[in-house]
Amino acid sequence: MNIVVCVKQVPATQKVDIDPKTGVLLRNGIESKLNPFDLVALEAAKWIADKTDAKIHALSMGPNSAIEVLRESFALGAKEGWLLSDRKFAGADVLATSYALACGIRQIGDVDLIICGKQTTDGDTAQVGPEIAEVLGIPHISWALELIEADAKGLIIKQDLGSMDALVRMEYPCLISVEKAMFQPDLPSYRLYKESKDYPLHILSADDLTDVDMTRIGLDGSPTQVEKIFIPSHDVKATRLEGDPEKISQDLFSILKKNKLIKEVQ
């Protein structure tokens, strides 16, 4: 049995400062790390692999430097790494990213289960998992809260359904994206890291993928276009209320109402 965990290299800091005059991002070097939500996905993979004797693969798309996050995945239980790296993948939006990762998953072959973190810290969309499942034509569960059972055929999962929680069974092949609270991630194991020196690590270009439609990857395969980026105007200017407590309370009530923080009477 094969499990693929999709991982991503993200900027190490979420806070970027912007030069207010030029609108340019100010960053000191480009430090990056493994997307923290993916740590939970790797833990979930280990939990399932322990019960099913499955092999864990880590798959990523990104620059060559993303090899680092695959090596980190080795220290967290993955046994084989796959990196899609090619300028032909550049400019990919959610759809083109999902398609490329789905092609990578087909290339790995005989994959039973795909696990994604809830979202990435740089994109924040939580959309890639469900789109991979659609490209591959397999069922998926988003917001998996808890793993209840895993066997050679499928999983029993507790899933967040908004106002309710549902206990569901899903058979392989399938995809899950896992909530942060599912596991407390382990620290990377130095022993595993040392052992992993010889683990296979494949770097695949677009041409290395068999059965890939080149019009569906990178910028050409991306239906969305970023027209521009800009700095948000800070309309939440600090307001100061002083003086008559009656007037203050009335203003405070109006502010809450204007910001839809008080439920409207229907």
Binding site: L95, Q127, P130, P223
Partner: peptide, 23 residues
């Protein structure tokens, strides 16, 4: 962008091979 909406919208958008912008 609820728990079900964020699970469903990407699947449908991917089916039509079209764009989806979150949040």
């Amino acid at each position: 962008a609820t728990v079900s909406g964020r699970s469903l919208a990407p699947r449908v958008a991917a089916y039509f091979k079209t764009g989806l912008t979150a949040d």
